[in-house]
Design a binder for these strands. Structure first.
Lengths: 69, 69
DNA sequence: AATATATGTCAAGTATATTTGACATATATT
DNA sequence: AATATATGTCAAATATACTTGACATATATT
């Protein structure tokens, strides 16, 4: 899994820390950290919660248009 | 989790059985069955694989616009 | 110097997604 | 009647998402 910079950016736009976002979506702070870092694969349910907290959609935060690497 | 009828429809449009789709995305047939049935929560990675196999995006297959229930 | 916030990371435990194998039903085909 | 495909479901095992607690660093504040 690749690093998810889009979450970090969207979070910055909402002025939320990883801890803030984690609490908003109901997971541990380490879980948000690992997701942004790309350590593992969140469930769709969690992705949807993150999207709603950040006012984005799944495609905007989690769709991969470029895996040309 | 609610029943995901959109996957079933998209699958029908591609003329694929649950088994066909499961093989295309690399999971067991029971896993696809459970996802369509809404029994549990797939990982984003799996969702993305399903989307690509069905020529759809995450928003089209997994975004929930209506949870007014 | 001390305190607080934000982030990164590790290790051990728990919850749950996913697998495998099996059995069941319905429909279509031979 | 027999065979094949598509789907639904169950139970036990395995992989991994996620939690909890802890420690570390960097930056800003008092």
């Amino acid at each position: 899994m690749a690093k998810n910079l889009r979450i970090k950016v969207a979070r910055a736009a909402m002025d939320m820390s990883q801890k803030d976002l984690a609490e908003a979506v109901g997971v541990a702070r380490q879980t948000m950290n690992a997701i942004e870092k790309g350590d593992y694969n969140p469930s769709v349910k969690l992705c949807i919660a993150i999207c709603k907290a950040l006012n984005k959609t799944l495609d905007q935060l989690f769709w991969e248009e470029n895996e040309n690497e």
